[in-house]
Design a protein around this nucleic acid. Structure first.
Lengths: 335, 335
DNA sequence: TTGTAGGCGTTATCAA
DNA sequence: TTGATAACGCCTACAA
């Protein structure tokens, strides 16, 4: 391995001077400077980032802790973080917490031990995710998808508005009994989405039937069961709002096995992107969150903060409705 | 931050002893040992991995360089690598090369500078991807999805067999003119798949019409154009083999816009998984590669090699055909 | 069994 | 403008 010492010898200077040239931390005589650069090129020297990290006490590494890397929404977030980080010279350590609070905690520890400069996280839980250790070490955290108490920032989507928009879309399409299948009751985004659904019904002067509001588990199995339960009701719903992309797969399977057709028998709006399936199902509307943008913004926020500590900054983005009937895409605020 | 020195003072020993206790590198008197452990607990000490990495000259970090993190196949690989690495106490740096050879090269440099212990890579190109710098530094590389000259190992799929299997499936379904849309001609997997397609045709005593074998770009746009071109032929194909999951989206869109129905007008087999769309399209068969397993094996291979340098090890896995008509899943070797 | 001392490769401080 | 020197936190000869 080529070290700075090798370069300094080749250029006939001290390693301090080499360091100065490479980091630009002080003035160096142009001639000396050139000799150093030549030696660097000659030897193909590259600074050892581990040594630099130890000395400077900061690495050029961010950590990204996601809930589920196989979920296209988080994948998009991931790309956004990745691109923004790369642009600023940061690398990204990927941690897939898998909705497991213990795994998440373990990852946060390791990331702290590795002296990551900052962390972007989609928390497993708004209550139980504990970033205290990071905060204590002065490692800033930006939350996405779900708010987090001590976070230095957050990039969230207005889930209430998004769910309300979806509900209004169903109403406008003529739905009379709309059901909502949402996530666990202790999940912040799940209850926000349910809340938006209810709000839209109230606004429209429609009754809210408790039978039609189901807390499920954000998993395919939950979507499947909840849908079957709804379809077994004496007074069936004629529209479904399903608040995440894993459950919608279960919902579709249940409807398919029962021979229930979309949108003739029930109209359906899904949440989150199923990007590659978009073309395949001509009758499934969905609420799309700007995953890439969220990730990008989150990383930028984090890196900004590293440069100059500021007060926590919270960004709220809007989801868009992709209506299957070919209507124009509409930001949620416009409805 | 709590250092080893702090622990040593609290326990009334030297930091060397603390190190010995924590790494188990030498015998320590049980009583002393206990005092050290107590101090560690008391202070909530955690070793600084950067310092350790500098001293030991090896980090507990692997790098994963993938072609396209938004592609469900690579996402599955990613999870496999991640899980296997975590199990062995390694972290994973994620690098999304985006099919860009320059971006890939840049990432490989950074990863080397960060002293990663090893690299799992899905190369952007079998010819142009250059891992020389890593090899020179003694950083082992395991290739997935595509073979790589100097790699310390590889985990690949038998693409010829897989494409042949898919082609036979179409033949068995009564197809008479089968077209194949594959990736760039300089892409190893793309030409392997085309090769398998041709081989199956030969074996069946069918002519190979050059008009029906199209090199495209592995992107949605390519699938769209190629499909349109094929459908414009005077003597249209009645079956399509599309060799990756991005192009299939373009194919489906083209077919849809022309009102061509699957499988009545043309039968279609796709490559790679579109996992979340599986439920949605009842008539689309596909060849599925075991992404998770590939990633897992690759990481295990890498970590094994770190423990004891061996000769390069190459693993070939089989794809499975998921036939839409409800036939049993069949490993490619059985056909 | 334990401690001392030195070094991993870089950078920051201080003198010259 | 440049060079010695020390230090980041850890590990490992070597000595005691």
């Amino acid at each position: 391995m080529v070290t700075m010492r090798d370069v300094s010898r080749a250029a006939g200077v001290s390693s301090a001077t080499v360091s100065r040239v490479l980091t630009g931390s002080a003035e160096v005589d142009p001639a000396t400077r050139q000799r150093v650069l030549d030696a660097v090129r000659q030897l193909d020297y590259r600074p050892n980032l581990v040594a630099r990290g130890l000395r400077r006490q900061v690495s050029q590494v961010l950590a990204l802790v996601v809930t589920d890397i196989e979920n296209p929404f988080y994948t998009a977030v991931c790309r956004g973080v990745e691109d923004a980080a790369r642009l600023k010279g940061y690398s990204v350590i990927l941690c897939n917490a898998d909705r497991d609070i213990d795994k998440e905690r373990e990852y946060l520890r390791v990331v702290a031990d590795q002296n990551a400069s900052g962390v972007v996280i989609s928390p497993a839980s708004a209550q139980n995710t504990d970033i205290g250790a990071l905060v204590a070490r002065g490692i800033p955290v930006v939350a996405v998808d779900m708010p987090l108490e001590q976070a230095a920032g957050s990039v969230l989507v207005d889930n209430r508005a998004a769910a309300a928009m979806a509900t209004r879309h169903l109403l406008a399409g003529g739905a009379r009994r709309i059901a909502c299948i949402t996530g666990p009751s202790d999940n912040a985004t799940a209850s926000d989405r349910l809340d938006g659904y209810m709000r839209a019904l109230h606004e429209a002067g429609r009754p809210v039937d408790p039978e039609l509001a189901i807390y499920s588990n954000y998993r395919e199995s939950g979507g499947y069961e909840a849908t079957n339960r709804l379809m077994d009701l004496a007074d069936r719903p004629d529209a479904l709002l399903v608040t995440n992309n894993r459950m919608i797969v279960g919902t579709l399977r249940a409807l398919q096995s029962r021979g229930v057709s979309i949108p003739d028998d029930v109209n359906v709006v899904s949440f989150d992107e199923l990007p590659w399936a978009l073309e395949l199902h001509p009758h499934l509307s969905m609420v799309r969150q700007p995953g890439y943008l969220i990730g990008q913004k989150a990383a930028e926020l984090l890196i900004e903060r590293l440069a100059s500590p500021t007060t926590p900054q919270h960004i709220v983005m809007e989801a868009e409705l992709i209506a299957k009937d070919g209507r124009a895409r509409t930001p949620s605020s416009a409805i």
